[in-house]
Design a protein around this nucleic acid. Sequence first.
DNA 1: TTGAAAGCGCTACCAA
DNA 2: TTGGTAGCGCTTTCAA
Lengths: 339, 339
Amino acid sequence: MATTIRDVAEAAGVSAMAVSKVLHGKGDNVRVGVETAETIRRVAQELQYHPNRLARSFRQQKTQTIGVVFSQFGRIGELDGYFTAFLNGVLSATLQSEYGLTICPNLVKSSVNGVINDGRFDGILWCKPDYSDLSAQAIERSEIPIVMMHAPDAEGPKVPRFCCDNPLGLRLAVEHLVELGHQQIVFVMDAANQSTSEGQERISGFETAMIARGVTLTDESVRYWTNPTEDFAQLMSSKAKPTAAITYSERLAVSILRQSEALGIRVPEDISVVGFDSTTYCETTRPRLTAISQPIEQMAFDATNILISNIDADQSASRAFLYPCGFDVRESTAAPRFR
Amino acid sequence: MATTIRDVAEAAGVSAMAVSKVLHGKGDNVRVGVETAETIRRVAQELQYHPNRLARSFRQQKTQTIGVVFSQFGRIGELDGYFTAFLNGVLSATLQSEYGLTICPNLVKSSVNGVINDGRFDGILWCKPDYSDLSAQAIERSEIPIVMMHAPDAEGPKVPRFCCDNPLGLRLAVEHLVELGHQQIVFVMDAANQSTSEGQERISGFETAMIARGVTLTDESVRYWTNPTEDFAQLMSSKAKPTAAITYSERLAVSILRQSEALGIRVPEDISVVGFDSTTYCETTRPRLTAISQPIEQMAFDATNILISNIDADQSASRAFLYPCGFDVRESTAAPRFR
DNA sequence: TTGAAAGCGCTACCAA
DNA sequence: TTGGTAGCGCTTTCAA
């Protein structure tokens, strides 16, 4: 067994609290003489004493750890740059703080309900919330600060929210395509995102932008995909074959790029593709991916810092942080071919 | 305050242990009647009881968490693909296990000594160990399993080690360059890595390969850089200007690529550059980076799984795992210009 | 089939 | 300036 505080106390001929005070000096009402303190420090050193952080955390109800919650989880840097950018932002913030970061698979697999208040975390960074009743309830009941990434201002529990200006992003994309001459434009998203607030906001942003530009909007203009490979093949063989697709993510855009290559469909000649996020990953695709941008790393950095300061201040100030979207034109969009 | 096990016990009219047994059923000597169990479950549900994991961990001396230790820490996916590949491997393994992953900034900033046995982790994944006496001592004293990435077989504490075949890697690089016609070849590494086992192994691997190929080896053949920008400028303006550089990492190689561009030095025409790791990041550089490869993700995946099984088996079997290196020729190497 | 007691290592609170 | 006591929430051990 490792050396405990009592071992040190015994060896130094003092009480356990004396040791605790000297080594971590929290209490203000208790002081220890200089000489005694020196002895304690020496003995602790000799005995290779290292405080058990689990015990301290348990006692103080404070773990110095932030939990990261995901509804979904893909490979890092594989089909998109999202998680890379996100992690860089979070790590930048935690590295200059006293907080550790736990990525917990169970938070992904099971319901977050009950995990939030299981004592392991001082705060939760919730990424891609789904706003199910269960989640909302879990947040409502939370005893620790929570911040949310990609949660629009409108609804949901009152916690700090970090979101990009989705309507602006979609408008920029639609305008870009319309100016290139496109009239058959679809918006493609994972079916799973249909139920998220951000999903809703992007759909309505897309529709609003289409209407504002006088582009025909049909029931088929918004597509919910569960199997990108099959769904894309079907899309391109249908009568309503579009000349341009705006996707919910880089991941979807990239899968279209790959699938196009497999099917002999040329991008951007046969179909223009617009992604969402515009991380450095877009520079690595072929063709390089035109995309709506949002400052993911900055958002993650800010979110983490706000979370930490809320933890430290023992509060949970609610506020919506809105980040502007940009639009980066690369090579995956062009004027539609005349046909 | 959150609902405790005692609240549930009281409400259900049973003892706390009964609740514990029913909800987590560990003990084999104690059983609870079916009806009682049902009541307990119902009451727990009603009271929104969720066990405090911190308390459980504390009591059981088991946290279901793995700690990741780094000696250095850069931005993910910024100047290399190392951390991305590493994390993908680790996360793949943890996601299919019951273990969480903690990345702790304090492990980076301060000595790991004392952190290893502070109770927070069931096991440590130690990346890029430095083999200082302090580290060695910490490992020796560890009460939990440790595995090491990038630790050669030869020396160091007896824990599972995962390492690539560095001599092979360096040989492949030197042979490639010699076959292109290079005779002035330098090996460049961060000064910080000079003290690591892997650093030593790569240096001797380089020297052995150079000698085997009959290439002139001088005191200046191996370079230890602290400031890549300045050091590279100096290297290229010296009399001993090389025609090819093999670097310790993708990061160093990329900084040479960038610096070359700034100085008007052409790669590979004026100097050939070979990186180490050969992740997908090498495809994104300009020119695309020729590099020695090691299967980082696979190594991280294996290391994590071995760690987990050592934890579960409550042992710490020592073994060295060696992974072959490969060599990926891309665009940053070519025959030296005639001069 | 059930419960009581004890204690993991530490620190808040109160007493001396 | 110092020390004792109690207890965080849970589970292990032993007793009923």
